[in-house]
């Protein structure tokens, strides 16, 4: 069976314009710049990267919340890159999204019951009021909310509970694909674990396909079967979680992993090689390999020839790099190889 979603050469450029009456385009932010990957049925695919790497834009493109500049998105083998109207509505029913901020993504003037039943009304299912209420209360129970709180307002709930409301709303129509965009980064540590466990439970219980977007590498590792690492609008490495975290091949992935502070003071004073500088502007990204300006392994070839995403000899992940990390370098970087 084919993948649930196939993304090919997806590009999204946001134009930068100036001009008085006639708007002239003087540049563009290359938010997503040629990204290809599959989302397999039933898997959790993680997308990690730092601010401005294009991970959220990618999610919004798949959801068709943004129009792509070029490239294609296939859903269940059908090209949905440009579908409109009823067809789009039908696809939206199958794809749902959970957002980062549980405070601002819920309408404060609506009761929890009406927030969760909104998808039913929009998509005209469960038109019987009593049946709808029952369905909503069942959903509330599923996500660990007290169904008796049906008539309460969002502000009466804590942050973690509000994120549960968002999850219930997303699950209402039994979607095939759930896209979670930084779903726990606004939550306290103890609450974060509650929501992560909930998402993992639901994924197992309903066989959901999940795209999990986050900047926190350990959260992504915990949640995802496969992981895509993005840098400045490109996927630089893609592979199974264990392989990617155990033996990263892209210097950027290695640097990301080495940068994560580990809750173990015994490792405290190991000197790690740190990336210098900040991420360049996506309006003017470096040529060829976009990481070459910060890469400790960069050579002339990296600034001339763009590396393609492929599995190198002996590698276990797809990587876009001319000079993938060697085992010795991994040890030197302080990446804790799980072997």
């Amino acid at each position: 069976m084919s993948a649930l979603v196939e993304v090919r050469d997806l590009v999204k450029h946001f134009p930068l314009t100036r001009g008085i009456v006639l708007q002239r385009r003087f540049g563009e932010v290359k938010a997503v710049d040629g990204v290809s990957f599959d989302i397999e049925r039933g898997e959790t695919l993680g997308i990690v990267g730092e601010t401005g790497c294009g991970k959220s834009t990618t999610a919004r493109l798949i959801m068709r919340l943004l129009e792509s500049t070029s490239g294609s998105i296939k859903y269940e083998g059908r090209d949905i890159t440009r579908v409109k109207g009823a067809e789009l509505k039908a696809i939206r029913r199958d794809m749902q999204m959970i957002f980062q901020d549980p405070y601002s993504s819920l309408n404060p003037r609506k009761t929890v019951g009406s927030i969760i039943s909104e998808p039913f009304i929009i998509h005209r299912v469960e038109s019987d009021k009593a049946a709808r209420k029952l369905a909503v209360q069942e959903l509330m129970e599923t996500v660990g909310l007290n169904p008796e709180h049906y008539n309460r307002f969002p502000h009466e709930f804590s942050g973690g509970q509000r994120q549960r409301i968002g999850v219930a709303r997303a699950l209402a129509l039994k979607p095939k694909l759930l896209i979670a965009d930084e779903p726990v980064s606004a939550l306290d540590v103890s609450i974060q674990a509650q929501v992560l466990n909930l998402l993992r439970d639901l994924q197992r219980r309903f066989g959901l396909t999940v795209v999990f977007i986050a900047h926190d590498l350990s959260v992504v590792r915990h949640m995802c079967d496969r992981v895509a690492v993005m840098y400045l609008g490109k996927v630089v490495e893609l592979g199974g979680g264990d392989a990617l975290y155990g033996a990263p091949q892209h210097p950027y992935t290695g640097a990301l992993l080495a940068a994560v502070p580990v809750p173990d003071p015994a490792r405290h004073h190991t000197e790690r090689r740190l990336l210098t500088g900040d991420v360049p502007s996506p309006a003017n990204p470096p040529k060829a390999c976009r990481f070459h300006t910060r890469c400790p392994k960069a050579q002339e070839r990296c600034s001339v020839e763009e590396p393609l995403l492929r599995v190198p000899e002996g590698g276990r992940t797809e990587v876009a790099c001319h000079f993938p990390l060697t085992e010795g370098e991994l040890a030197q970087m302080g990446v804790r190889s799980a072997g």
Binding site: D188, S190, I191, S218, V262
Partner: peptide
């Protein structure tokens, strides 16, 4: 304990379940 068991780790088994602290502060 709750804090330590709530954070996913970069190593060890991915199957390790997080043990959240129930409720909120």
């Amino acid at each position: 304990w709750g804090l330590l068991k709530s954070i996913p780790s970069l190593e060890g088994s991915r199957e390790r379940e997080l043990v959240p602290i129930p409720g909120s502060p």
